[in-house]
């Protein structure tokens, strides 16, 4: 039991992942969906960051007094992933703006209703 709780950082990542995922699926508002997607992505960033962290480790600085380092590689990777995430959100929001311009709504059920009765 304490093992499971000791890995609280993973629990947080999974909790956020599910919150985000639920939002993507359940929310009918296109912007809220994107917010969910962002939370979902962020949880994965946390997963990466937390796996690279070593207890009592510092940033990898070569020098006296620093002998325990966190693994910098996942942290660097996640910089790239964050950029990708921002790009995705930006493209998504751009699409939502154009959808609003063309259809006058960003609610999914209204969009579907429009499609059914042209």
């Amino acid at each position: 039991m304490s093992d499971a709780l000791g890995l609280y950082n993973y629990w947080i990542a999974i909790f956020l992942m599910m919150v985000g995922f639920y939002n993507v699926i359940a929310s009918g508002n296109l912007v809220k969906k994107l917010i969910g997607l962002s939370i979902f992505q962020t949880s994965v960033f946390l997963l990466y960051i937390t796996m690279g962290k070593v207890k009592d480790g510092t940033a990898p600085i070569l020098g006296d007094g620093y002998d325990t380092f966190s693994n910098p590689l996942p942290h660097v990777l996640i910089l790239t992933a964050i950029v990708v995430g921002i790009a995705t959100t930006a493209v998504g929001l751009a699409l939502v703006i154009r959808i609003q311009e063309h259809f006058g709504t960003i609610e999914e059920d209204e969009l579907i209703a429009q499609e059914d009765s042209p």
């Binding site: 994965v44 998504g92 699409l95």
Partner: peptide
């Protein structure tokens, strides 16, 4: 065709979920 916007949005959501899953797996 304005419907392409909705299609692209849907693809974006699904595609991002797929890609993020791959990211998790790689991690």
């Amino acid at each position: 065709d304005p419907r392409a916007l909705k299609a692209a949005y849907k693809y974006l959501i699904m595609g991002t979920i797929g890609a993020t899953f791959i990211l998790i797996a790689v991690g």
